[in-house]
Design a binder for these strands. Structure first.
Length: 697
DNA sequence: GGTAACTGGGTTTTT
DNA sequence: CCCAGTTACC
């Protein structure tokens, strides 16, 4: 047990009030860099010093990194199980509960957790059955269908409402889309598939259950929620159901940093906390321990304020120098200017790892990446494509899912298509032959049976086991593919018979060796990648756990799997603004401050979209501790234009209005000197040379 | 005739 | 890397 005094050491007055708040509902409105994590950690420690058992404190976050970070700080080194605070992301905690009680949720123990790309694949298959495929080019694509689905769930809105609000161009298809969503849901049930949204829905459903609800609620005395501005409707419900009267509830957040509306989050849930809990106490943390005053002046100039939750950050770390706005000729100049400033800071003693380059979209750094590589500046990139999105990794995960849950037809589909000569049609026939076929629309008798028994296993979950009859199914493959498919599937069936996770993972990779070598010219590198995946999976208690962990917390790169990075290595960080949330660096370089990038032109169609872009800019600015550089490439490539007019001038981001600009120091980058003078008509010279080789044309 | 493979153009943000 | 359109194969 801790001494309260030690627990509260070094906290300021407001932080201390938040940490020692009694049991009523509490909202800590914590601006960027105001010691939010520290306060939350202190609150958990204080609760324990007051007698609350660690295991009865639940800490909910949005990213695995935030969860790990906080849990590590809450728990003394070498804590026993009883000393352990419960916590994790909403999704991970939901999964733990569901996994532990799969049968109460009417789920087969071998259920698969599918990620958004699997959802898209599945939508693609189902789409053909709902008249969304054909010659009409305007039909919503699989990815859009998946987006509409998840948005319906996360904002608790109907298909019609979501289409009207966010996808007006799909209005002609709302009937088909509604039917598609229903068959998507039915399909998941039949095949033991659980998507990310289901994890939250299942948890919420359990909390509303008259028998299970009180048990789940009673497990915790205190619930601490980080980044509350990023909850969606289902998560807000879960929090309310966990603490119906607000006793023991602490929410920490800042609605000016809400940047996840695109996935259904809504800062309105934070703003309405006071309505949900009339006795809510609001404590503001405004003393900023991160940034210099010069940076905060810009941050305060661009911070959107919402009535009742106003906040202005106050600097605790001295004046500093103003953010520098570097106006660049074009993107290449921007890349050069960034490299120059990165190296300059490096030479004056700032490690590369203490600098970050932040961007709106992962793609915005492509020119810079070339420049960094050319100059030999090492970097790591966060955000954008992840390791688990690489084709060979998906292939491996599909094979592993077939082993873990043989009813997972989406995994089968991908696995089979990895083989030469097998496309969508043969893959589907093979799956039918396994006994996994969906009772399609054409077969109402079958469909009726499926709907009747809710919770009753689908074709692959009860009946004959799909992996037991793979030998017959091979006949469905075209003759020339049969040997390869038989070898792969036979080897996977062998893997399924093994017990230890390590052996299973190794056998799965061995099963894929042939197909991967046939498919990818660089198979050697890819297989080496997968070997690390196998090693990482081997440490998990089961293949299922390894797969869920990879889905919910995908490693950024293969090297991420190899354990903590070596301390002697120094890398510049490149990150999307979204992935940079919650982090800070002494020096921050912010790219592409032009309208169309920040704010993104995709977000300009609605005032809400624009407001979110402004918050994103605010998040980016508040990552900097000492020095902030803003870069605006004002001359951009035009995609379709005459050869001699391929450029146009972009506009500096609208968020840098006169008041904000007054807090910056603007400089113009020198345009590059042309390396070569213009050379005459080269084509004629080349033609003459070629004519001398081949004769005149 | 139906399938699979190839080619070329385009890409917001993520649990 | 993904998708659509097109060509080449069984």
């Amino acid at each position: 047990m801790f001494e309260p005094a030690a627990v509260l050491d070094g906290l300021n007055e407001d932080q201390r009030r938040a940490a020692t708040h009694q049991s009523g509902p509490l909202l800590v409105l914590a601006g960027a860099g105001t010691g939010k994590t520290r306060t939350l950690v202190a609150r958990a420690a204080w609760l324990r010093s007051q007698g609350t058992q660690a295991a009865r404190i639940l800490l909910l976050t949005f990213t695995r990194r935030a969860a790990d970070d906080m849990l590590a700080r809450v728990m003394p080194a070498g804590a026993s199980a009883a000393e352990r605070v419960c916590g994790g992301t909403f999704h991970a905690v939901a999964h733990q509960i569901i996994r532990a009680h799969a049968e109460s949720f009417s789920l087969p123990p071998a259920f698969s957790v599918i990620d958004p790309s699997d959802v898209t694949d599945l939508m693609d298959v189902l789409r053909t059955e709902h008249g969304l495929v054909g010659t009409q080019r305007r039909a919503p694509r699989a990815g859009v269908c998946a987006d509409i689905y998840t948005r319906c769930v996360n904002t608790q809105a109907t298909v019609a409402e979501v289409i009207a609000g966010s996808y007006p161009w799909c209005a002609d298809f709302d009937g088909q889309l509604g039917a598609l969503m229903r068959s998507y849901v039915a399909h998941k049930r039949r095949h033991g598939l659980v998507d990310f949204d289901d994890l939250l829905l299942l948890w919420r459903a359990a909390l509303t259950d008259p028998a299970a609800g009180p048990v789940l609620r009673g497990m915790f005395d205190a619930v601490l929620v980080d980044e509350y501005q990023d909850v969606n409707a289902v998560q807000a419900d879960i929090v309310r159901l966990l603490r119906p009267d607000g006793q023991g509830l602490t929410c920490v957040g800042d609605d000016a940093q809400a940047i996840y509306a695109f996935r259904g989050a809504d800062p309105a849930h934070l703003r309405s906390l006071a309505d949900d809990y009339p006795d809510l106490e609001v404590i503001r943390l405004a003393r900023n321990y991160r940034s210099r005053d010069a940076v905060l002046r810009l941050a305060n100039a661009i911070r959107p304020q919402s009535p009742g939750l106003e906040l202005a950050l106050r600097a605790e770390r001295g004046t500093g120098s103003p953010p520098q706005l570097v106006r660049c000729h074009d993107e290449a100049t921007q890349a050069r200017e960034i490299c120059a400033r990165v190296l300059e800071a490096h030479e004056s003693g700032t490690d590369l790892r203490d600098q970050a380059v932040l961007m709106r979209a992962a793609q915005h750094s492509s020119v810079l990446e070339v420049e960094l590589s050319a100059r030999g500046i090492p970097f790591v990139k966060y955000g954008g494509l992840r390791f688990t999105e690489a084709a060979h990794v998906k292939d491996f995960l599909a094979a592993a899912r077939v082993v873990a849950n043989p009813a997972d037809d989406i995994a089968w589909f991908r696995l089979l298509r990895l083989h030469d000569g097998i496309g969508p049609v043969h893959a589907r026939r093979f799956i039918e032959a396994l006994g996994l076929a969906d009772p399609g629309l054409s077969d109402p008798g079958e469909a009726g049976r499926g709907e009747a028994g809710r919770g009753e296993a689908g074709p692959g979950l009860a009946g004959p086991r799909p992996l037991d009859r793979w030998e017959d199914a091979v006949a469905a493959a075209p003759a020339r593919s049969r040997p390869a498919v038989a070898a792969t599937v036979g080897a996977l069936a062998g893997a399924a018979a093994l017990d230890r996770t390590a052996d299973r993972a190794t056998a799965i990779l061995a099963a894929l060796d042939g197909p991967l070598r046939d498919r990818y010219p660089d198979a050697g590198v890819r297989i080496a990648d997968l070997q690390r995946l196998v090693d990482a999976a081997a440490t998990r208690p089961s293949l299922h756990d390894a797969l869920v962990e990879l889905a919910l917390d995908p490693p950024v790169s293969a090297s991420d799997l190899a354990g903590p990075p070596r301390l002697d290595e120094d890398f510049l960080v490149l990150s999307t603004i979204h992935s940079a949330k919650g982090l800070e660096w002494p020096v921050v370089h912010l790219l592409h401050l032009v309208d169309g990038a920040i704010p993104s032109d995709m977000a300009l169609t609605s005032p809400a979209g624009l407001a979110e872009e402004r918050r994103l800019f605010y998040v980016a600015v508040t990552r900097a501790r000492d020095q902030l550089y803003l870069y605006a490439p004002l001359r951009m490539h035009h995609h379709r234009a005459a050869a001699d007019d391929r450029h146009s001038y972009g506009q500096l981001t609208r968020f840098l209005d006169p008041a904000a600009l007054a807090e910056c120091e603007a400089v113009d980058a020198t345009p590059p000197e042309p390396v070569l003078p213009r050379i005459g008509p080269l084509a004629a010279t080349i033609d003459a040379a070629l004519d001398s080789l081949f004769g005149p044309t």
